[in-house]
Amino acid sequence: MPKELLNKEDIERIITRMAHEITERNRGVQSLCLIGIQRGGAHLARRLALKLGGIGGKTIPVGVLDIALYRDDFAVRKEQPVVRRTEVPFEISNEKVVLVDDVLFTGRSIRAAMDAVMDLGRPSAIQLAVLVDRGHRELPIKADFVGKNVPTSLEETVRVQFAEDGLEDRAVLE
């Protein structure tokens, strides 16, 4: 039986809170840009950018990153991961990049994402914002901004769905 972790209103509140946290930590939104990891992170990044823009009074550049080509599990996967578009239509060198993902789990996606970002330029800093941190890290990676910490077992999965994909905003534990 899937257990609801976050509903539409929860997600909305979390995005508002994270936008304020990001602004506070960076003392404003100067030289800040957001990069969402395909696919869930991309939706979150766009929403977060709108919110941040509202707070900071300027448009925040937002891009999407595909990490398929940077994964570390080619040898053990049955199929090649689907290659999607990376669209980061702005210069990231000397900017502060906030990586955005929906669920933080082993940390391997974030490792791949950091390598992918480094191939696009040399940001002055990379920070990490996630909607759900479910634990079980396999790498020394920690999120700077967390929507909700959820203790999970390895057998469970956390699924986040978004209105952008034609579904209702929610996060569930299955």
Binding site: A68, L69, R71, L120
Partner: peptide, 12 residues
């Protein structure tokens, strides 16, 4: 996309 970047190489 990759071919349009400065670093035109991926580790896949």
């Amino acid at each position: 996309d990759v071919l349009g970047r400065d670093i035109k190489k991926v580790p896949a």
